[in-house]
Design a protein around this nucleic acid. Structure first.
Lengths: 197, 197
DNA sequence: CACAGTAGATGCACTCGGTGCCATAATGGA
DNA sequence: TCCATTATGGCACCGAGTGCATCTACTGTG
């Protein structure tokens, strides 16, 4: 790949990845709140103003390029065989979404630990979660030929997120837990909780 | 009531309620983002600094005295008969929590519309939701003689929140919807979604 | 090589939320 | 009146985020 990158204008001085790396190093050292955007800009060797061309806000840095991740998620759900029961389709989608190669897990864990631990990031995450829920809701709406504003798509979106967040809570609390197993387990827990109705 | 308020020091210049009222008026007029803390302080006739003695942040103003609300929720759950099945106990608690007198609904609706619509407030709400979930998790842990960090309490907390938020989404989108009915409905929707497994 | 075109980088000034510190005001009681 | 107590609120300051204007580095062309 990389035929030629003949772009007209000035080349980019840095990249999302570079900023992310420098930022995570600083976060690990001084904490998220203890790191200013000036710190990050200096570490990357770029102006503070430039950071905002790569990330919408400081809170977005730990999320990396989440838009791309969501695009992949969208494609993932769209690729589910249509003869699969809806709840199976969603469940598999969520499982695949959280299926990372082993060597990526440490970094993923660190990223999620940061996001789920720091109050400012916890709060901000709500906005990203809403986008994630929408992807699910759209899938459900498409499968049921309904609207994303219907009760079912919204319910499935919210509940899927609830289960995922539960799993992450437990996973982060237990050094040896396996994310996908906890995810499966939380789903089972919900079933048995509602079961005896 | 109001036996005597013989407190030693200087009397308070305002109250949570007064600030809240002035703030909501301004929010309705110029929007949440278009209202500065200076605006609110001026409207109340108090220093900007003083606002922070009543509310931890601008984002907390729309929530009123949520601590007190949570205390009531805690007592509500604790008062549930122990012979009630756990899921019933939680369900009833959530229903009662959202059972407002008719004349309080318009204000409640406006408050929730604001919180669930404005991005800054959406994000901030995550922190309040976490406290709300904890109340449920504690109840479940108490009922099951387990720990709040166990899978079940966490799952129930997250899923209960998911259903409540779903209900609020739908309720706010439909002028004529009845909150408690939508809540009940979203619960049923979840059951039927998971049912055919 | 000079010049035009293009797009990213960045400095600057400014707004606003939020905090620490501290002096001050208003009250009840001795 | 003087004191203890408690709330007020001014002041200085920090850091995130934005709009605007300018500059810079690179491509392509004559």
């Amino acid at each position: 790949m990389s035929s030629q990158r003949r772009q007209p204008g000035r080349p980019e001085a840095t990249s999302h990845g570079e900023i992310e790396q420098a930022a995570f190093a600083l976060f690990a050292e001084r904490g998220f709140d203890g790191t200013t955007l000036d710190d990050i800009a200096d570490a990357v060797g770029v102006g503070r103003r430039t950071l905002f061309r790569y990330f919408r806000s400081k809170n977005d840095i730990p999320w990396g390029q989440f838009d791309l991740t969501l695009d992949a998620f969208r494609r993932l759900l769209a690729s589910m065989p249509e003869d699969l029961p809806l709840h199976e389709s969603v469940h598999r989608g969520v499982m695949d979404f959280n299926d990372f190669p082993d060597d990526a897990m440490p970094a993923h864990r660190e990223r999620m630990r940061l996001i789920l631990t720091n109050p400012a990031l916890q709060a901000h995450s709500m906005l990203r979660y809403a986008e994630w829920r929408d992807v699910i809701a759209e899938h459900v709406a498409w499968r049921t030929r309904g609207s994303v504003t219907d009760l079912l798509p919204r319910t499935v979106g919210h509940v899927s997120l609830a289960l995922a967040l539960t799993a992450y809570d437990v996973w982060l609390a237990d050094e040896h837990a396996v994310l996908l197993e906890v995810l499966e387990e939380s789903m089972g827990t919900l079933r048995s909780y509602l079961g005896p109705s």
